[in-house]
Design a protein around this nucleic acid. Sequence first.
DNA 1: CAGGGGGCTAAGG
DNA 2: GCCTTAGCCCCCT
Length: 103
Amino acid sequence: MSSSSEQYKQQILQFLAQIPKGKICTYGDLAKGAGLPGYSRFAGAVLRKLPKDTKLPWHRIINAQGKISFPVDSEPYLEQKKRLQEEGVVMIKGKFHLPTYRL
DNA sequence: CAGGGGGCTAAGG
DNA sequence: GCCTTAGCCCCCT
C-alpha cells in the first residue's frame, strides 16, 4: 500500500488541477511540474484512465508537438479542441503555438 | 521472467 | 512534414 504509483498519480492530478484557464501544458512539463521528470508517458497513462465526467482540465494537456494526442477523426480530439477554444485557446493548422504552462 | 502497449519525447533520415 | 529508432515510466498478459 505504499502507494508508489498511486502517489505519482495524485501528484500528476494535483498539478493538473492547478493549471489556470486558457493555459496549456505538455505531458513532459506536466510530469516535471508534478515533480516527476521523465514520467511523461506515465502522465498520459493516468489521464487516459480519468472518468469522462472528471472535473480535471485534461483538455489543457497536449503533446510536445503542440498538437492533440488523439486521431483527428476521433471524438476526444474534437472534445478537447472545443474546450480549449472555449477557454480562448485557438489552434492553427491543427496545432497550438502557445507557450506551455510551467510552474 | 518475457512481451506488448499507452493521450510521450528527442533525435535522425 | 512524415516515419523510424531509442529511451523513459508503469501496467497487464
